[in-house]
Structures are given as structure tokens and as C-alpha cells.
């Protein structure tokens, strides 16, 4: 088991390195000269040269990449400025440390992701469960029709509709402003309510469909027929025997989806103007701010890859049928 975990973590590092190198190469080849960008309009060739020198842009590509990697682990010096341990460089636009930018934005993305996840898990799993139990009834049919509809609404369309109805027409909610929780808990909650809902709808509908399908499949299994034949009551069968095998696959999918959201809900954050990682990504791409694009891509990939490993480990713990064979 330990060997398996170490092997998987090795895989994580390899994939992250590949993502890193790929992003680095692409932006190196495609982007305009960063030195010219930093320097701005009033610029002398001397200044461009000195900026190139400080950033190490004169060195060969691989040396630069190596310096970038070393900076993350050990920190690095730009001329006289020292950038300490997890060094992802400085923004070309604001000269802010990229690491600081990430750490200030991350809480917003986490808030968005956690709130949405709670909503969609509650709504999706409960809805799917009830549908499965009442399979074939009007409830089941309308819930599943609703789920198909919900999956089909692009989230920016839903975001704009909600904003139009709730903020402009009915004026029951303020425009999302994302204040600190401690300052104004009510406004905080009201601000995040729409982003949570918008994100949660699509996932809730998917989870409802998945849960329903899984529960129905499980109920048809032999061991449940045995349980019924032994005269166990329906609620007891559901609670004690059907739920665990039916819901275990949901946890793996949930892990992946949640990890993906931690790297920033790009569209939702942009539409609602929430300063999370997703909006940071959109802004840095619009301004061609390479160090920030690099960092955001890496962070998102990190969450996905680590999430993947965690999911596999949790699955082995939850479902003893999946044994890890050391081969």
C-alpha cells in the first residue's frame, strides 16, 4: 500500500512537470516579448536589456525553465530582489508576487466551491434517491425531466437570468460583492447565494441522474433479493444494504468535480465579478500576464491530479472489492 501511494505521488509530480513544461513552451513561443510588455510605452532599449537580464530572458529556454522550477522549491533572486521559497515570479502587470496573488484569491474560490458542493450534494443525491425509490411515478418522471433541463442550461445563461430576475426585477438580492464574512455575514451569504446556485444546478442534475441509476442498479442485485427474501423491511434494506454500494461511485466523481472547482470556477466567477482564482485566470489571460497564467494553470492542474489520487485512495478504503495489487 505504501509503495502504491509513493508510486502514485511520483506520477503526480511527473504530470505536473509535464503540464508545467508544456505551458511554459507554449507561452514562450506564442507570447510577445515580456521585457517589452513590462517596460511599457516610454521605454529605452537599455532598459529592455536590463529587464531581460534580471528576468534571465537572455538565457536558453531550458535554463530559464530550470530556474523557474528551482524558484518554486528554493526561491530565487531577480537582480537585487529576493523572491522566497514558493516563488512563482512577479506579475508583469502589477509587480505583485504571484504567490501572494494566489493566496489572497484562493479563499474566494474555496468558498464558492464548498458552498456549491454542499448544495448540489444535498439536492442531487436526495433527488436521485427519491426518484429511484419512486421509480416510474410522476415524481420520478418530472424530477428526471427537470434534471435533463438543468444539465442543458449553460451556466452563464443561468447566471444572467438569475441576475436579471432576482437583482434587477425583484430586487431581493444585492449584486454579488463578496465582502468578508466577519464584516457582514448577511451580505456575505446573499452575495454568494447566486454563484453557489448557478454552479450547483448543473452538478445537482448530473448527480441526481447518477444516484438514481446507481440505486436502481443496486436494488436489482442478488444480495438485495436475498435481503428481501429474508423479509427485511424496505427502509432497512435501503439504509443498511443499498446505500453504500450505490453511493460509493458518487464519492469518486464528487472528488474529481470538487478538485476541478478549487482551481477556479472561471465562468461563474467572471460573470459575478468574484475575485477568485477563476477570475484571476481570465484577467491574466486578457492582459497576457504570463507568470500569473503559468501559476493559475499549475494550481488548477495540481488540484485535479492530487484530487485524482485522493479519490482512488478513498475508493479503496470505501470499497474493499477494489484491491490494490502490487505488480
Amino acid at each position: 500500500m505504501t509503495r502504491y501511494v509513493i508510486g502514485r505521488l511520483g506520477g503526480v509530480v511527473v504530470i505536473l512537470l509535464a503540464v508545467c513544461l508544456f505551458t511554459y513552451l507554449i507561452f514562450f513561443k506564442l507570447s510577445p516579448d515580456p521585457a517589452v510588455m513590462i517596460c511599457g510605452k516610454t521605454c529605452t532599449p537599455d532598459r529592455i536589456d536590463s529587464i531581460r537580464d534580471v528576468l534571465g530572458l537572455n538565457q536558453p529556454l531550458l535554463t530559464q525553465f530550470w530556474e523557474f522550477l528551482r524558484g518554486i522549491v528554493a526561491g530565487r533572486d531577480y537582480g537585487t530582489v529576493h523572491c522566497s521559497a514558493p516563488c512563482l515570479g512577479y506579475s508583469f502587470q502589477t509587480n505583485e508576487s504571484v504567490w501572494n496573488m494566489l493566496t489572497t484569491r484562493l479563499p474566494v474560490s474555496i468558498t464558492v466551491a464548498v458552498g456549491a458542493a454542499v448544495l448540489w450534494l444535498l439536492a442531487g443525491v436526495a433527488g436521485g434517491l427519491i426518484s429511484a425509490i419512486k421509480q416510474g411515478t410522476w415524481w420520478d418522471r418530472s424530477a428526471m425531466a427537470l434534471a435533463l433541463t438543468g444539465v442543458s442550461v449553460p451556466n452563464y445563461v443561468l447566471a444572467l437570468v438569475l441576475q436579471y430576475v432576482l437583482v434587477v426585477k425583484l430586487q431581493v438580492l444585492p449584486f454579488p460583492a463578496a465582502p468578508a464574512f466577519a464584516d457582514n455575514p448577511v451580505l456575505w451569504f446573499e452575495s454568494y447565494l447566486m454563484p453557489w446556485t448557478v454552479l450547483a444546478v448543473g452538478y445537482a442534475c448530473l448527480y441526481a441522474r447518477l444516484t438514481r441509476a446507481n440505486v436502481i442498479d443496486t436494488l436489482a442485485e442478488n444480495f438485495l433479493r436475498t435481503a428481501r427474501a429474508k423479509g427485511l423491511s424496505r427502509p432497512l434494506i435501503l439504509r443498511r444494504h443499498a446505500l453504500r454500494p450505490a453511493l460509493t461511485p458518487i464519492t469518486t466523481i464528487f472528488g474529481m468535480d470538487f478538485a476541478g472547482l478549487l482551481g477556479g470556477a472561471l465562468i461563474t466567477e467572471t460573470v459575478f465579478g468574484l475575485n477568485g482564482i477563476g477570475k484571476l485566470a481570465a484577467d491574466s489571460i486578457a492582459k497576457n500576464d504570463q507568470p500569473v497564467i503559468m501559476a493559475v494553470t499549475l494550481l488548477a492542474a495540481f488540484f485535479v491530479v492530487v484530487g485524482n489520487v485522493v479519490v482512488d485512495l478513498v475508493y479503496t478504503a470505501l470499497d474493499p472489492r477494489v484491491r490494490v495489487t502490487s505488480s
Binding site: 493559475v296 494553470t297 492542474a301
Partner: peptide
């Protein structure tokens, strides 16, 4: 496949399309 699926595709698509 692992590599492509680990990639934050949306961010990358936007970045690549905006710089091309």
C-alpha cells in the same frame, strides 16, 4: 490521456486562443 485529462482545459483553451 492522463496528462490531457489533468490539464485545466478551459483555462488552457482560453489562454491558447487568446494568444494565437
Amino acid at each position: 490521456m492522463d496528462f490531457l485529462m489533468a490539464f485545466p482545459a478551459l483555462i488552457f483553451m482560453i489562454a491558447i486562443l487568446s494568444s494565437l
